[in-house]
Design a protein around this nucleic acid. Structure first.
Lengths: 339, 339
DNA sequence: TTGAAAGCGCTAACAG
DNA sequence: CTGTTAGCGCTTTCAA
């Protein structure tokens, strides 16, 4: 594993060619102090002639700044991820930072190697997606004063880390209002997500308070496992139908479980939305192509990424950043009975 | 923009605590020379007590190795992207490298800042996705001896850069064979992709040679613009129908244009596959949810990412890597008339 | 098997 | 406005 040969110009060569000191070259390139126009011109000339590009590592070592943001994700697979990254990239690049990506896989595999990657070394700060990092690491990051912003996850109380969140509860209220006020539903079932998932928790709370606000009773028999999975919700929905439980509408905690529910209804020989209305949450790219197209809540994922990176940069630069709630949008399509 | 305080242990502190020299600590941590078991133990102890994590930039500066791979993408938005990144990440991490991501946006915006990001500084090598980098930069990378692997793009002849490609032509042959041999089609239309896109070019070549191999004539009236877009192909397909052109089946150069074609057929009051059969290419996540589910070719995207990163690492370590062709798989569903 | 010491290429005081 | 110089934290000869 021999080191690559470096056929590359250094700051000294640029300085020599321009007839100035390395400090001046540095000043010109970083715009960190006023330099005479003529000197500056000569430096740029030398830079371009030599094809000079500063060495990032040397810079980082000397300045204690990497100009790089880290993004930690639980696993890089779901459809959620592409828009998120687009947003993060946009915010990151607009501010002149680079982006280092690290997927943590399952939590079990977080080890020392994991620290190496992001431990205050390769990055000036970390953007951490929900469920990708254990609290113990968050504490460690705090200890070494590594700026951190949480994405779609609330901070552990004791740490008070700024985060970007969706207005889940508000979104659910919009959905339930729509079911109740527009379609006159009364028996609205809920397919909940994983118990540990915060989004799911908020959505369940929203479901309960929304029903209450309409004076509807909460029937625990109408709350079942969806687990953010097509299959799990298929099972639950099929069981409900088999049990002959009366249901006007189903609110699935995410679009994947909505898909499962729709499939179960159809497979049972019933019709969506004729017999049972269905709504989801997330607005996956697939959702508008379903049959019928799924009414759901669109969460501005790309925006979350961008806002998160902007917050992180602010945190790095000023030490301040405020937790942000992003509004969600009701996408009315046909699975709820509209149109 | 003041530098962060670093409440962090350095190699000197570890050395002091373990009662050895910094060189020895380095040797233990890098496993770069034999060290007595006892000494080694003491070093690890000190490392763990001090919570020591090596400083990546210092390491890079001293060793001229960053342990980081760069990935360049044209834009981070399509559905293609998530599995690709998953694969790249897997290959990268398995070898102990980090991953730096950079989307180049449209080619116009490639400038000096762009060089800064990847110019042989932050990364030991580059994985470059099709259409994200101009040839001039490829030349420059060659000049500074930065290892590069191309993803889904053939190298400019003069540079001879190793690349990962799909067996596009073979895939097309499978599709056309299926149309001709299984469904007895004779008038098969083709919706081509963007002219500059290499995948599209290969697919068109495949279309032509496949027809020929079955002794079918190539009717240029049956070749139209799909542009890898839903709308463009909708237009073309609608026009064909309006013109009363006789068509048994449509081969769309990608799934998006297949979607457009299916919509056009349906909107014209015709049936897929009853009146016109449709097949696509790519197997997007959406495709199996379409109505009817789309018969298409699945390209192993994640595998391409993983293979690419493995090749790049081999290139970095040994200086060698061979261009790889990845096989594709025919996904038979209902839009071709099967089942 | 270990230590001493010379850089890696750059930034940031400090001086002038 | 510009130059000198001392590191940043680590790896890697060279000696021992």
């Amino acid at each position: 594993m021999q080191p690559r040969q470096t056929a590359r110009a250094t700051i000294d060569q640029v300085a020599a060619r321009a007839g100035v000191s390395t400090a001046t070259v540095s000043r010109v390139l970083n715009n960190s102090a006023t330099v005479s126009a003529e000197t500056s011109r000569r430096v740029f000339e030398a830079v371009s002639e030599l094809n000079y590009v500063p060495h990032a590592a040397a810079r980082a070592l000397a300045s204690n700044r990497t100009n790089t943001l880290g993004l930690m994700l639980p696993n890089i697979s779901n459809e959620f991820f592409s828009p998120l990254l687009r947003g993060v990239e946009a915010g990151t690049r607009a501010a002149g930072y680079d982006l280092l990506i690290h997927s943590t896989g399952d939590r079990q595999s977080q080890d020392v190697g994991f620290r190496r990657v992001f431990g205050d070394h390769n990055t000036d700060g970390l953007l951490i997606f929900a469920n990708s990092v254990d609290e113990q690491y968050l504490k460690w990051f705090r200890q070494i004063r590594l700026p951190v912003v949480l994405l779609l996850e609330l901070s552990p109380e004791t740490l008070d880390i700024p985060s970007v969140l969706f207005e889940n509860k508000d979104g659910v209220h919009q959905l339930i209002d729509h079911f109740v006020l527009v379609h006159g539903c009364r028996r609205i079932a809920f397919l909940r997500g994983p118990e540990t998932n915060q989004d799911s928790q908020w959505r369940e709370k929203g479901y309960r308070t929304a029903l209450e606000s309409h004076g509807l009773p909460i029937d625990e028999a109408l709350i079942g496992v969806g687990n953010f999975e097509e299959n799990a919700s298929y099972q639950t929905m099929s069981q409900w139908i088999a049990d002959g439980i009366e249901i006007d509408a189903v609110f699935a905690a995410d679009d994947e479980s909505a898909i499962g529910a729709m499939r179960a209804i159809t497979d049972a020989g019933l019709n969506v939305p004729g017999d049972i209305r269905v709504i989801g949450f997330d607005d996956l790219p697939i959702s508008r192509h379903l049959n019928p197209p799924l009414t759901t809540i669109r969460a501005p994922i790309a925006e979350a990424g961008q806002t998160g990176s902007e917050m992180l940069i602010s945190l790095i630069r000023t030490g301040k950043a405020e937790t942000t709630l992003l509004p969600v949008e009701l996408m009315i399509r046909r699975s709820c009975g509209c149109e």
